[in-house]
Amino acid sequence: MASLHYKYAAMNSGKSTQLIQAHFNYRERGLSPYAMTPRLDDRAGVGVIEARVGLRLEVDTFSRDCDLFRLLKARRGRHRVDVLILDEAQFLTRAQVYQLARIVDELDIPVMAYGLKTDFRGELFEGAHYLLCLADKLEELKTICWCGNKAHMNARLDQDGQLVREGDQIEIGGNERYVALCRRHYLQGRAKG
């Protein structure tokens, strides 16, 4: 029986590395994984998932108005799909998370979604909120703060390396804009020691 998995963490926890490894594992076993990433995440190029350790995977993209259930149902009519693997799942809409649940329940295709849980203000992303509500299996991936403690907060930095507390929820960026911090240093506003 298929399941909806949500693997979440702060920035730099290895989510993309695990996603690419899972995709490889399915292919190595003769199965057909189908991976996607949001079109708006163009840090490594549109339709590219890139891990900090150098791994890279070219995939299809989806937008906020894409009906993932209809897309997967149509794709399955043309190609074998053994699992759907999604990157940056925090950018999903509520409707899209419900579509993922339908993919699992009606098409019997497992879904593995990887993403952040909270934004730079410590608030849930829409996609994360509904994945936490609907996922069959939740897994928190771990990363560490500069102090060595568990980091689960995502801090946005300005051009001077200072924490930003206000602004649009979605601003695409990597290590130059974001850092994972423990709660203590996030609340203190200390991006480094």
Score class of each variant (00 low, 15 high):
54 G>D: 07
99 Q>M: 07
15 K>L: 10
92 L>H: 00
32 S>E: 14
137 K>L: 11
159 Q>G: 08
157 L>Y: 09
105 D>N: 14
22 A>H: 06
191 A>W: 04
103 I>E: 02
157 L>H: 10
46 V>H: 05
98 Y>M: 08
59 V>G: 03
4 L>Q: 04
10 A>V: 08
24 F>V: 07
34 Y>R: 13
35 A>V: 15
171 E>F: 04
74 A>Y: 08
147 C>T: 12
92 L>M: 08
162 Q>C: 09
6 Y>E: 01
94 R>I: 04
83 V>Y: 02
193 G>F: 05
30 G>R: 08
88 E>G: 05
174 G>A: 15
177 R>G: 00
155 A>M: 15
89 A>T: 13
113 A>F: 07
178 Y>W: 03
107 L>H: 05
16 S>E: 07
130 Y>T: 00
11 M>T: 11
67 D>M: 04
163 L>S: 01
111 V>L: 08
189 G>N: 00
40 L>M: 13
150 K>D: 10
121 R>Q: 15
102 R>H: 06
1 M>C: 02
141 L>E: 03
173 G>E: 13
179 V>S: 10
107 L>D: 06
118 T>D: 07
155 A>G: 13
64 R>G: 03
181 L>T: 10
162 Q>A: 13
92 L>Q: 08
160 D>A: 10
139 E>H: 08
85 I>E: 11
74 A>T: 15
192 K>S: 11
122 G>F: 06
149 N>G: 04
100 L>H: 07
177 R>W: 02
47 G>Y: 07
92 L>G: 11
9 A>W: 04
147 C>Q: 08
50 E>P: 02
192 K>T: 10
152 H>T: 12
172 I>V: 15
29 R>I: 01
114 Y>R: 04
93 T>S: 15
165 R>E: 06
48 V>T: 14
59 V>W: 03
190 R>H: 04
66 C>N: 05
44 A>E: 11
43 R>T: 02
46 V>K: 15
38 P>R: 03
141 L>C: 00
65 D>V: 12
25 N>K: 08
169 Q>R: 14
186 Y>H: 12
114 Y>D: 06
26 Y>K: 11
161 G>T: 09
74 A>H: 09
31 L>D: 05
40 L>N: 09
110 P>E: 09
141 L>Y: 11
101 A>M: 09
118 T>W: 02
152 H>S: 12
174 G>R: 12
153 M>Y: 14
186 Y>W: 15
158 D>W: 06
6 Y>D: 00
168 D>R: 12
129 H>W: 01
67 D>H: 14
18 Q>I: 05
144 I>E: 11
1 M>H: 13
36 M>H: 01
27 R>Y: 05
10 A>E: 03
123 E>T: 09
12 N>T: 08
